[in-house]
Amino acid sequence: MFIVVLSLIELEINMIRDITIGQYYQTESVIHKLDSRVKIIATLVYIISLFCFNNFSGYILAALFFLCIVKLSKVPFKFIVKGLKPIMFMLIFTAALNLLWTPGEHILFEAGVIVITLEGIKKMAFMALRLIFLIIGSSLMTLTTTPNQLTDAIEHLLRLLNYIKVPVHEVAMMMSIALRFIPILIEETDKIMKAQLARGADFESGNIIHRIKSMIPILIPLFVSAARRANDLALAMDSRCYHGGRGRTKMKPLKYKSCDFIAYFILLCYIVLLIIIRKFVPF
């Protein structure tokens, strides 16, 4: 179990380096200027729409819609596609599963347990398209929205939960602090690892138990350091008069502008088109 967690952490660290979700691409564009709430809602609607389509015309609509927004956002296309790299394995795996194990009437190929059907190919294509658009769609949101805008929007969108005593402000604050400290802690892990390597530590050889044990000299200092930073940060926040969300003003309050309403209108059109395609377009 432990080793699984560790290798996950390791994988995570490697992925954070080339994953585009959570990265911000700085440029001036209409999409960048949009209110982050619009972007979150639009992304959610878009993701849901991917699962509503039941024919290829729907995906053509999704692709066209997406391409228009990419064009508007001025984010280079290859940057967005890069987001797919870390999920490539998962993508191929699920595609293969769908391809090989979907029962159906139109059998195209059969060899022992492997049966490829027309339905299977169709399902595989839908699955792959959904996943791809889901990932690049959400990458586009994070590429055009700063983490702070995101947390602000989440805080705002979830503010109703305040009434059932969910500490929305605190959770949003924690998210934004976590975003700030992730790169610092990654750097710190690297440093501690090197320091223990310099003392002859060996993280690579030996059996599983040995390797779990070899992580202790990294994990304990990392934990101590994270605790120290948390303590320091709590003091620093106290000293700058932080006392929760009560009576707090905003330097960058969320305010809808006219372009945001236009964006909502376009989104509405997309939903209408979606319904039309689902109901009236046969393939």
Binding site: A198, R199, P217, V224
Partner: peptide, 13 residues
């Protein structure tokens, strides 16, 4: 070749 990093006390465990 021994190497002592900056703030080496942060590596005690």
């Amino acid at each position: 070749v021994g190497l002592v990093f900056q703030y080496p006390e942060h590596q005690l465990f």
